[in-house]
Design a protein around this nucleic acid. Structure first.
Lengths: 342, 342
DNA sequence: CCCGAAGAGTTTATCGATAAAAAAAGCGAC
DNA sequence: GTCGCTTTTTTTATCGATAAACTCTTCGGG
């Protein structure tokens, strides 16, 4: 650490009566060292409480064992939980993570890619929010990067994403199976055919279709913020529109929590009057009242896959293999907001 | 970045036709450089898109511009929001943060202090959970460290904490001002006179006293987890005990959210039958239904203070000044769980 | 008895920056 | 024109590790 003078391999070497190189070799598991010498060096290491200086090693080796995690905002539970999973997965992989929050701000999202600290890390795990594929491609990125999360667009980059379509379809099918026929959708995004919103909307339509229910524009609410407050206003808008509905699928749990709040404060019963389901299975979904039915992507699995993929790319060095796309599995956590007593 | 050969100070020097030292000096804002030379160097820097190698600089300077944030678990909103504030504050201070999650596990909490990466950072911002002052003191820590958060114990270290007693007192006074007289307390911890739980309990007792209400053991529920699930079971326990109560103060919002859920699913009206207040003012408190009255510590202020203090300690080097203790301000966010219509 | 190969260590160069010392250039005064 | 002083620039050493090249034993074979 900065404030104390730590011992170096030279100190160890001096104590052990060998050259620094012998120490270095031993540390890196080099075979040709006599048993007696090895013992002396190990002894010196213990005696001096020597720890290799990572910075020096990094400088020499050119790699740091650190990855950056670019994430919009830890205040949102979905991101916080994802970050936690990534950090754990990275630790298991022997990497340390360096969290860079972007606020979903395009400028800051870009800054991460060119920023000062990008040289400190071996690669970047990127959870984009407002940046789209074209901008990203135009950046001419020449280091390992893996995109992660729901808002992944078709791009040249490796990415790890959620079963958007399938998950949404399963949730909506569940709502329909309860006898609901007027299922609203909150969280559509205008003007995109790609991305999580579009895929989840497609899953919703798929489910309607297979149940023989006609798709209706007036049940689809646009909302590209996907936060609690926007979910609350979107639901307000839906209620104000006067269009009758008996269920809602929200693109994520934050929207659902906000929508749920609006429903309850409007005096409606959930799930009596309106059943509601979300996506992400964040922890707050389990403790709302009624608790929230939600699509649960394998978050840890996702994080592990992303870290693993990034690590492979780092090891590959320049030689880039074909782009990879990993999609996690999912399950549907059914709770009170769809099958409650109320 | 690892995969591409970045240009160095020597490359810049060659292009500009000067020595590397001239470049270095210019970069560090040294005055004695002729205008014409300066222009040539700046030109070369731009031309080569040169960025200084941080690792090399760190090795030479002995400092890294990075701090570690040791935090139990990002999945808990309070920690996630605090982490977000710390990261922002650090960025403003020109530091980058390196998040280390400990799961509140004593072993891992200790590991952070001796761990490999501790040499990578200039200091540590430590949010302890299960570790106590004695253990920490015994660690013989010889680098800058600042303790942060609610669970700060009396110790030899600098720390930045919340107005535990005052905040709790204000919340309970508010409950009493609504005419509630049987105010329960969830989140007490056995066997401690220090720490947030004890201080908040004292605040609770203060409020009762000044209102002339007798303190009653049967209204105080022990809970040292302070999580949603434990809040739910603590409330369950309180209800099962049969002790009548018309208000609850919970030591944090997570407990309150869990308790709220139990109350509502037991068919009680909030705040009609029971008013409830929490502590932390996390975002989920604002979107529960009813929304949750909560003590709002100045989280950003807290984070800024902690980062600032740590930075000062880092700059001081070994020469340690007197221990500092900073307590943030607070306000009470009054919401539906105490003054709702229901 | 000398040569070559293998084994065990040591010396020297390097990563890319900063710091200190040394050298060169510029400039006014005598 | 050159001495001395300041300004500007270059040279050399250093941070703590790794990599490559080199030295010194030891030992077996011809």
């Amino acid at each position: 650490m900065a404030s104390t003078k730590a011992s170096t391999i030279y100190d160890v070497a001096k104590v052990a009566g060998v050259s620094h190189q012998t120490v270095s070799r031993l540390l890196r598991g080099y075979a040709g060292i006599r048993e007696e010498t090895r013992a002396r060096v190990l002894d010196a290491i213990k005696q001096l409480d020597y720890h290799p200086n990572i910075t020096a090693r990094n400088l020499r080796n050119g790699s740091t064992g650190m990855i950056a995690l670019a994430i919009p905002d830890l205040r949102q539970p979905y991101f916080a939980e994802l970050a936690q999973s990534v950090i754990s997965a990275a630790r298991d992989a022997g990497l340390t993570v360096f969290v860079e929050t972007t606020d979903g701000n395009p400028e800051r999202e870009l800054a991460v890619l060119g920023g000062t600290q990008s040289q400190l890390v071996d690669g970047v795990l990127y959870i984009p929010k407002s940046i789209d594929a074209d901008i990203l491609t135009a950046q001419n990125i020449e280091f390992p990067i893996v995109l992660l999360g729901d808002r992944i667009l078709d791009s040249q980059f490796d990415h790890v994403t959620l079963p958007n379509l399938e998950g949404a379809r399963a949730a909506v099918q569940h709502l329909i199976s309860l006898g609901r026929t007027q299922v609203a959708f909150i969280g559509a995004e205008p003007d995109t055919d790609f991305g999580a919103a579009a895929l989840r909307l497609r899953g919703y339509r798929n489910a309607l279709e297979s149940a023989g229910i006609a798709y209706r524009h007036d049940l689809v609410i646009f909302d590209s913020e996907w936060e609690r407050h926007s979910g609350a206003s979107s639901m307000r808008a839906l209620l104000d529109s006067g269009v009758p509905f008996d269920a809602v699928f929200c693109c994520n749990d934050a929207l659902a929590i906000g929508a749920l709040r609006t429903l309850l404060s409007a005096g409606l019963k959930v799930p009596g009057d309106v059943a509601i389901a979300g996506f992400d299975d964040t922890e707050d979904a389990r403790f709302s009242f009624p608790s929230l039915t939600s699509v649960a992507p394998g978050r840890d699995e996702l994080a592990r896959a992303a870290v693993g993929l990034l690590q492979r790319r780092i090891e590959e060095g320049g030689a880039r293999g074909a782009r990879e796309e990993i999609v996690s599995g999912y399950s549907l956590a059914i709770r009170e907001s769809t099958v409650g007593a109320a």
